[in-house]
Each structure stands twice: as C-alpha cells, then as structure tokens.
Write a protein that binds this DNA or RNA. Structure first.
Lengths: 184, 184
DNA sequence: CGCAACTAATTAGAATATCTAACTAAAAGA
DNA sequence: TCTTTTAGTTAGATATTCTAATTAGTTGCG
C-alpha cells in the first residue's frame, strides 16, 4: 500500500517544493559520464509519475475496500475463466510473487467470499481457484471506476497528444516489460 | 516494497500471457458510457508501466540495501541542506506520509548511521534531521546507478521519440501531480 | 502569571504486502 | 517401494504504512 495525502501540518516549518531543477543539478554532479542526461531527467519524471499514478488508482479504489493488486488477481480469475484451470502456482507466476504470498492473498479474498478454492481431482496436491458470484459482483461494481480513473490520467491532453501518447506508452511498456522478463 | 521476479515454477499449469486484448474486451462490457475508451486503454498501459518502472528501480537499488522511498528521503536532506531546517513534520508533509511513519523511517536510517537527529534549540519539541557523512557517501555511491536506471527506461527510443516523450512526460506529470495536490 | 489549548515527536498496536525456510501431502521416477 | 520432486501452506520475518494515545514543550489569553 502506498501513501495517502491529508492535511496535518502547520503552515510553519514546511519544506518548500523544489521542483525538478535541484535534482538536475545534482544529477550533473553525480551521474556516470555515459548516462544520457536528457533520458535520466525523463526517467526521474517517469518515476515520480509512476508513484502518483499508483497512488491515484489506489485512492480511487479504496472506497471499495480493495487494492489494485487484489483487483488484478480477481481480473485474472475472470479473464482466464473457462479457458484454463487456475492454481495458486499459476497465479504466483503471473503476478511475479511467491506462492506463499499468493496463499495470503487468497486467504484474504476467500475470507470475504470473493473466491473459492477447490481441490483438484486429477492431482490432489493442486488447488483450483475460482471467483464467486460475490467476487464477480464486486468486480462489476469496481470496474467502471477503474476504467474512468485510467482515462482520467490523460484528462488534459489534446486529441493529437493522445495519439502520440498511445504510441509512446505502448513502446515504453514494451521496453520495460522486456527489462522485467514479465508478460501480462 | 514491491514484487520480485524469480523462476520457481514448472512449465506446467502456467497461465498463458493474455496481452491487453481481453482487458479491452472486458472494458467494453464494464466501463461507464462516458469513459473514453482510448484513454482508458492508455491508462491501463500506464498502470502496468508504472508498476514495472518502480520494480525496475527497486531492483536496481536493492544491492545497495536501500529502497527508492528511503533514497528519496536522503535526497531531500541533501537538497535542502543549508537552505532550511528539516524536521520530521516537514518531511512527513513533503513525502505525503504521517509523522509516525517518518519516525519509523528515521529510526531505520539512523540505525545505519546515515542521518542524525538534533534537538532544536529554539523550540525544544522539534528535531532537526541531518544527513551524515556516511549517508552522503551512500548517496554518492547509489546515485550513478539511480540515474542510469532512470535513463535506461528509454533505451529503445529514437532521438525524435525522446523529444516527444519529454514533452509528454512533463505534461502527464503535471496532470497527475495536480490530481494529487502534491508538489515536489 | 498560570492554565488551557495546541503542536512536535514518539510509542504502541495494527494492517498490508511481501519474503525465506521449513513442513505436509501427493505424485512421479527408477 | 523408496527417493525425489512438486503444490500448497505455515511460521516467522521485514518493510511500509496507518490510527490513537502519550509525552513534552510552546502559546494564547484572562
């Protein structure tokens, strides 16, 4: 879970917002010679942006009592439904976390009645995970907000800017996805 | 702390990577009427990208035994040094977390000798936080990696694409920053 | 002045999200 | 059958956050 923002501060010994410039100055003194300054600057913005994007989404999902990562798991269950059997191991692999972490996640979701575990007939070590009707109802309730929050990230962009943004995002996503060895 | 990626999975009951299409199909069924589909699609990519960006950075910083958020705090100390007095309250406000959380962060950093707390003379309730020589040394050691990781996020982009990306990132950062009420 | 009200920081206790290592039970191999 | 491997869970840990209560110091005001 990430930050929250509330007011709890006397307008007093507050640190002024520095903006990006002091960071760039520091970069000039501390980056390796072969580091492309312009790219590093963009990366810094990207990092800040990423932080804020996740905060915004978690903030908008909070009223539903579910985090983005748990919703992610539920969506996985919805999208793979019928196609293939979903096991904790499979989920761990797809989410990039350990089996033990999935166990904890599933415990949490099961406690709320949003998923069920069914022991596999074929291989009795395995568990099949399924979303319940209640889980499906939750997803249905949450998704409109999810999508509108997604869209809201680009609210100030013109039509042309959106076209550009789309291409770029696809490319960046590809670059970083590769760098992670991941795949969604 | 976010995910990690390791192999610990039999090539067996793995969930296939679905890609973005099933998500878009689901969006068509579940987004509100007035949600702009193209933007929502981009937002989804942005969300995935954000997750990956933070993972990449935390992965690259891990060898130094410090997380991005703790490095962030140390950088704040470096950049405000000499200009203004830095208190836990001020830090909490700037980092968008509670004073109690800052206390925990400072305990951790102090235990490693990277910061010190100095009781204020003027107002004995207050604490001034300062980075130590060891803390400065750590920052100096980490920053080259930090910047090169930042830059690496754009490794596959052409020169023109970078120019476009820069404009766009500045704009998006502005949008989301505003949406958060934040300021760095 | 002296006390009520406020403020700064910490402590205590909790939740989430992750990890590693050890364990249990089942399946597979030889 | 007996060993090894696999799936899932448990146990115990760390990190990052929170709220509420506490301690100690400052300020305002009658």
């Amino acid at each position: 879970m990430r930050k929250k923002r509330t007011k709890e501060q006397a307008m007093d010994q507050q640190l002024p917002a520095l903006g990006v410039e002091p960071y760039l100055e520091l970069m000039n003194q501390t980056a390796a010679e072969d580091t492309e300054r312009k790219s590093a600057h963009m990366g810094l913005l990207m990092l800040w942006l990423s932080d804020n994007v996740l905060d915004v989404m978690d903030g908008d999902l909070a009223p539903y009592g579910i985090s983005e990562s748990k919703l992610d798991l539920l969506l996985l269950l919805v999208l793979h439904e019928g196609r293939e059997l979903i096991t904790p191991s499979g989920l761990a692999d797809r989410l990039g976390i350990r089996r033990a972490s999935v166990t904890a996640l599933l415990d949490w979701l099961e406690k709320r009645g949003w998923i069920i575990r069914i022991q596999s007939e074929a291989d009795r070590r395995m568990i099949h995970v399924r979303i319940t009707e209640e889980g499906r109802a939750l997803v249905k309730q949450v998704l409109p907000t999810f999508w509108s929050t997604c869209a809201s990230l680009f609210d100030g962009l013109s039509q042309e800017e959106r076209v550009i943004a789309e291409k770029l995002l696809i490319k960046l996503h590809g670059i970083v996805e590769k760098r992670m060895g991941g795949g969604r």
